[in-house]
Design a protein around this nucleic acid. Structure first.
Length: 258
DNA sequence: ATGACCAGCAATGCTGGA
């Protein structure tokens, strides 16, 4: 089976591209971020016609996440339990797949703008809360996948300019330590289980010909639990949608589980 | 040297993204 993640930067604008992509890549589940729309505007019928069930957690203008799944969804949890948050950034669900239940946690991690800022402090608090949530989720659901836009480039090789951008947003030691903490609780970065091309990125700035010059970051990730790790067969970034007219600035990431 | 793009909201200029 295949699970994918994609920050679409407005589902209202990107819906046709998402449907086109699903037609070409009929993944079993797709996690979306940055819907930028309320749940009453979520295009459920269009996804159902494409063969997917869906659970969404949206808000006006900003953020918003959703899970699409061919298999039935249950036990949907919105946001982080016990963490009071105005922003719609997390949705979790159990997928009843043919291979058994799979817990999918989909996050649109806080950007954080600039180290030292109030938004960065919120990012750190949010990451602390997410860690606690994931410990509980992992204890309850050994077969777990954490996906989304992490807004963290975990290592130097995940950035087009690791020296020039050292300790700037997405590159700080504090953010990378949070990412490492996720790995230490028994999650594995599926992309790095395989040999990958150098300068593999999942996001490119709209400005400065970022994509054309491959000046990007790898900030969209798929982490698998220990129970699922032996089943991971491939993990790739699909750069093709970034070449579309009116593209999202992010590309989809896809994991194949045996 | 600087800023350069895109989306939403709302009303033309701002916020936020990364």
């Amino acid at each position: 089976m295949q699970v994918a993640t994609w920050n679409v930067n407005s589902l209202a604008v990107r819906l046709p591209q998402v449907l086109d992509w699903l037609a070409a890549h009929p993944v079993d589940a797709l996690a979306l971020q940055e819907l930028k729309l309320t749940d009453d505007k979520f295009p459920l019928a269009a996804f159902e016609e494409a063969g997917y069930r869906a659970a969404a957690h949206g808000q006006k203008t900003y953020n918003g996440v959703a899970i699409l799944s061919r298999a039935p969804l249950r036990d949907v949890v919105r946001n982080i339990t016990g963490f009071d948050d105005e922003q719609a950034r997390v949705i979790s669900a159990t997928l009843d797949t043919a291979e058994g239940p799979l817990r999918l946690v989909n996050g649109y991690f806080v950007n954080g703008q600039e180290p030292g800022s109030e938004k960065f402090a919120y990012k750190m608090r949010w990451l602390d809360a997410l860690q606690a949530q994931l410990r509980a989720e992992l204890a309850a659901h050994p077969r777990l996948v954490l996906v989304g836009d992490f807004n963290v480039a975990p290592e130097d090789r995940d950035s087009y300019d690791p020296e020039g951008l050292r300790e700037t947003i997405h590159h700080t030691t504090a953010e990378r330590d949070h990412f490492k903490a996720l790995l230490q609780m028994g999650l594995t970065d599926a992309f790095r289980m395989f040999e990958q091309p150098e300068k593999s990125f999942s996001w490119w700035d709209y400005r400065m010909l970022g994509f054309q010059k491959n000046r990007g970051l790898r900030i969209d990730h798929i982490l698998v639990s220990d129970a699922l790790k032996p089943r991971v067969q491939a993990c790739t970034i699909d750069r093709a949608p970034r070449k579309n007219k009116q593209p999202s600035d992010h590309a989809p990431v896809v994991v194949t589980l045996g």
